[in-house]
Simulated scan of single mutants.
Amino acid sequence: MADRSLESEQSWKALDGEQMSALLRGSLNDYGAPPAASAEASERFRLQLEQSDQDPMDAFVEAVAGLTDAVERLAEIAAKDPLAAAASIDPSAADYAEIESLPKPIRMTVRTWLGRLLVRSRLYDEALPVIAEVDATESIDPASSLFYRGACYHALLMKQEALTDLRTLLENEDDCPIRFSRLAKLMVADIKPLKEDSLDEISRLMTDVTRRLDLGRSDEKVEGQEQKIIDKLTKLIDKLEEQQQQQQQQQQGGGSSGGDPKNGQESPMQDSQIAGGSGDGNVKKKNLGDDDGWGNLPPAERKEALQKISRDLPTHYRDAIEAYFRKRATDG
């Protein structure tokens, strides 16, 4: 007997063809389509799912477009230019109010359908406003709503949002397409250990900038991402230099603490105990000089430290650091 306790934890469930068809018919009736037309559209939709391999969301949008002008226009625009389609349902666009007035199942499914198209084209920035507010439980394909939005969040390094959607998707893995569940697990494992200001994050930001440039983007968003990379590299390298300096200071301090009594230095104690001594406890103040930057590593030591730090890193991390210093030299 199946464990019913797990079913109560599932926040979504997949619909079969009959349920999708009924949802389509009810939504068209709520929209105000003639009952006969709604019945005909839903039956045609059901037969398409049974007799062909047509994607349910494609068939759903096609059926709705035949009876709603707003979805018909959106589908026509999306076929030519997905970016223009995304812009057409922006709150400032003329068609926004008409799309938002559609029954919720239609609205959630149409947004998921368009969001999927944008994500498949790597247009994550444009996909997010389209799909961000989708209620997956109101879509005819909840798995697609969760998967493509999770993939969008993952690509944009929105860690918590990605984990939320992908884990929700995996709550009902039995009803989830295998390709979705496998990729969702990989994405969860990939983004879960991501830490802010790490080399991993910097590398991903660089990949994101490359994607944007591949798409022909060179706007303020790209410049902002590039500056973020430089800032994070600066912060990381400063931290690594500080750690290297502290290690050197500890080594120098440790080298002068013990010694050979024959050379006028005392040996370290063999056992832990309260040490004796005849000193008065006063420490002679060391004159560090008045030169600025006394705490910075000399150029030769700085170069050596960075070589040691990056020696075992993957190639793309070393390239990132080298690119950073080339930019610093150019800016300087």
Rank of each mutant, 00 (worst) to 15 (best):
R111C: 04
G281T: 06
P142M: 14
D260L: 12
L288K: 01
D238V: 04
A36W: 11
E226N: 03
A39H: 13
G253S: 11
T112Q: 06
R46N: 08
V71A: 11
S11T: 07
M158F: 12
D197M: 12
D219A: 15
Y317N: 12
D95W: 06
D319G: 05
E223G: 04
E171R: 01
A2P: 15
R167W: 09
Q245H: 06
L146G: 08
S27D: 13
L288I: 05
L163Y: 02
D292Y: 09
L288H: 03
K285M: 13
A14M: 05
V222T: 03
E100P: 12
S21N: 08
Q246H: 13
D95I: 11
L118V: 06
V188Y: 04
A132W: 03
S256N: 07
I230M: 12
E98V: 09
V130S: 06
G279W: 02
S278E: 03
D197G: 07
V61K: 10
D200P: 06
D208E: 07
S145R: 01
L15F: 06
S11R: 15
T112S: 07
R120I: 11
F60R: 02
I140A: 08
G332R: 04
Q270K: 15
S42R: 11
E242T: 10
N172H: 06
R107L: 14
L49K: 14
Q249S: 07
H316T: 04
Y324R: 01
D135N: 10
G279N: 01
D331R: 04
I131T: 05
L118Y: 12
A320R: 09
R311A: 03
R328K: 08
W12T: 09
R111D: 03
P193Y: 00
N296P: 03
L163R: 02
L102G: 08
G26H: 12
Q225P: 01
R149M: 10
D200R: 00
G259M: 07
A70T: 04
S139H: 05
A39S: 12
S256V: 08
D174L: 11
P299T: 11
W294H: 11
L213K: 15
Q270C: 10
S139M: 08
C176T: 15
R204E: 14
A329M: 02
D331G: 01
L199P: 10
L163A: 00
E40G: 10
A87P: 07
A184T: 10
M269K: 14
V222A: 05
A65D: 05
A79K: 11
L166C: 15
N296F: 09
S310Y: 02
E201Q: 03
Q160Y: 10
T330L: 12
Y148V: 00
I99V: 06
Q249K: 15
L297K: 13
L49T: 12
A151Q: 07
G115H: 09
K221E: 02
Q265N: 13
Q10S: 07
E50K: 05
D291P: 06
S21I: 08
S121D: 00
T137I: 02
Q160W: 14
A93Y: 11
I99T: 07
K232L: 04
L47P: 11
E266F: 02
V283G: 03
M108Y: 08
L199Y: 03
A2Q: 14
K228T: 15
S218V: 00
L67H: 09
I77D: 08
A36N: 11
G264Y: 01
E40I: 10
G32L: 01
S5A: 13
